[in-house]
Design a protein around this nucleic acid. Structure first.
Length: 423
RNA sequence: GGAGAGAUGUCAGAGUGGUCGAAUGAGCCAGCUUGGAAAGCUGGUGUACUGGCAACGGUACCGAGGGUUCGAAUCCCUCUUUCUCCGCCA
């Protein structure tokens, strides 16, 4: 959520930045400023009346103590009249604040100056490409066929017990999952992230805090009886740990990581491109989150990007890094890098990580602040990234490392798997 | 799931209708003291909105939301949550 005062003071710039994100309801900006004016004047009217009421109440107390009942009664009847006015003003104020909030949450975050113009994923900027494309024989199989051939993932069994998009990992397949999770967590720990193991179901307030609610309600699984949501990413519980928190400046940066399963309804996406592990309702992911001083957030975004890249390098996967264009970026992000690995048998790039700087967009909504050295509270910047999401990584490992007789396990995983070959 | 008791500032902990944004103690910060430190003494020490160049004001907030009242931390209702006991159970 953007700050009203910022919008007010930088209106032209806000409009220009919003248009980079292909946001077209620019009239919202004026409406917000107008509502904020109304909010201020209504509140100050109410405050004035309340101040009068408070001093009258004090006088009445004074009179009662001195036994001047008649005068007190007279004052009582006077003040009881203005109560209705105060009530009316406060109702107006609440309505104005609600409308202001509803408009404010419709504005996406402002893109950073380096964000390229564009509307579609094709207009994302390829920042770098790294690694070798594997030389596969013409008989190379896509990962879903390899999974069946070596009996490591059973999609049909998942359909039986849950539905499409809920695979069952078997034997060495299951061990590969555990190995990847542990490898990613170990690397995150080496990079200074503190691990958090968090609830997989969250309440409404948390969904609002990170911005999944109300907009993306349809993307989350909802447990109606308890009004809880299954998390679509660890970002939700981990970031909400810091909701309504005032940190000390010396506590920054906060670096957390966490492994969780992630649940996404993915309503409306079916077809060949979501086959196998390409898109699931439940998948595993290690997430990294940082809360940092505003002066450092872009430097830290680069560090996080390098951390993710180091994982891909150790796994020996060919990858590329994209700087997302205005039209392809998420609602809450100011700058996002997507990491894609090459899936050699499918002959396409698969997104395996997304690293973003949200600047103050999340912290404002979360009421996450820090107290600076000069004693002033201000909003820190928040960042997060996948490091990494498992299914497409596994898909690429299976496809890219396939041989006639089986699949080679990347060396960095062997200490975690206990085997180096799947056959 | 049943019964009971709580939820107050950074923490501990008073406060049961008016002088309470809130005693007291601890912590923390600053000053005094000291060669330096400890102890001691003095002062300061919440958040948000808002007026003001500022000094300094106004309003709201004592788990959350409603209600009673001229006036609510204090009374009433609902919810959340913690603890104790019973029951159940990985």
């Amino acid at each position: 959520m953007l700050q009203v005062n910022y919008i007010r003071e930088n209106k032209e710039q806000v409009l220009e930045r919003l248009s980079v994100k292909n946001f077209n309801q620019l009239e919202l900006v004026d409406e917000i400023i107008l509502l904020d004016d109304q909010r201020k004047s209504t509140q100050s009217q109410a405050d004035d009346l309340l101040a009068k009421g408070n001093s009258a109440a004090k006088q009445i107390g004074e009179l009662m103590r001195n036994g001047k009942k008649d005068e007190a009664e007279q004052l009582k009847s006077q003040t009881s009249q203005s109560k209705e006015d105060v009530k009316q003003l406060q109702e107006n104020l609440a309505a104005i604040e609600l409308e202001l909030y509803q408009k404010l949450v419709q504005l996406p975050n402002l893109p950073h100056a380096s964000v390229p113009l564009g509307k579609t994923p094709e207009e994302n900027e390829v920042v770098l490409q790294n690694g070798e494309k594997p030389n596969l024989p013409s008989s190379a199989l896509p990962h879903w066929e390899l999974a069946a051939k070596y009996n490591i993932i059973d999609f049909e069994l998942g359909v039986k017990i849950a539905g499409a998009g809920f695979p069952v990992y078997k034997g060495k397949g299951a061990k590969m999952q555990r190995a990847l999770i542990n490898f990613f967590l170990a690397e995150a720990e080496k990079a200074g992230y503190d691990e958090m193991m968090v609830p997989l179901l969250v309440n409404e307030a948390s969904g609002f805090g990170t911005g999944q609610l109300p907009d993306k309600e349809g993307q989350m699984y909802h447990v109606g009886i308890d009004n809880l949501y299954l998390i679509p990413t660890a970002e939700v519980p981990v970031t909400n740990l810091y909701r309504d928190v005032i940190l000390k400046e010396e506590e920054l940066p906060i670096k957390n990581c966490g492994y969780t399963p992630c649940f996404r309804r993915e309503a409306g996406s079916y077809g060949a491109h979501v086959r196998g592990l390409n898109r699931l309702h439940q998948f595993d992911k290690v997430e990294i989150v940082q809360i940092v001083h505003p002066d450092q957030s872009y430097e830290i975004l680069e560090q996080m990007s390098l951390h993710v890249q180091s994982l891909l390098q150790k796994l020996g996967l060919q990858y590329r890094v994209l700087r997302l264009c205005g039209g392809d970026m998420g609602f809450t992000s100011a700058l996002t890098y997507d990491m894609e690995v090459y899936s050699a048998a499918q002959e396409r790039w698969l997104e395996v990580s997304s690293v973003s700087n949200f600047e103050t967009f999340q912290s404002n909504r979360l009421k996450l602040r820090f107290k600076g050295k000069e004693g002033k509270t201000q909003l820190p910047h928040t960042l997060n990234g996948s490091a990494l999401a498992l299914p497409r990584i596994l898909a690429s490992i299976l496809e890219n490392n396939q041989t006639e007789n089986g699949i080679k396990v990347p060396a960095c995983l062997v200490p975690f798997t206990g085997f180096d070959f799947i056959d």
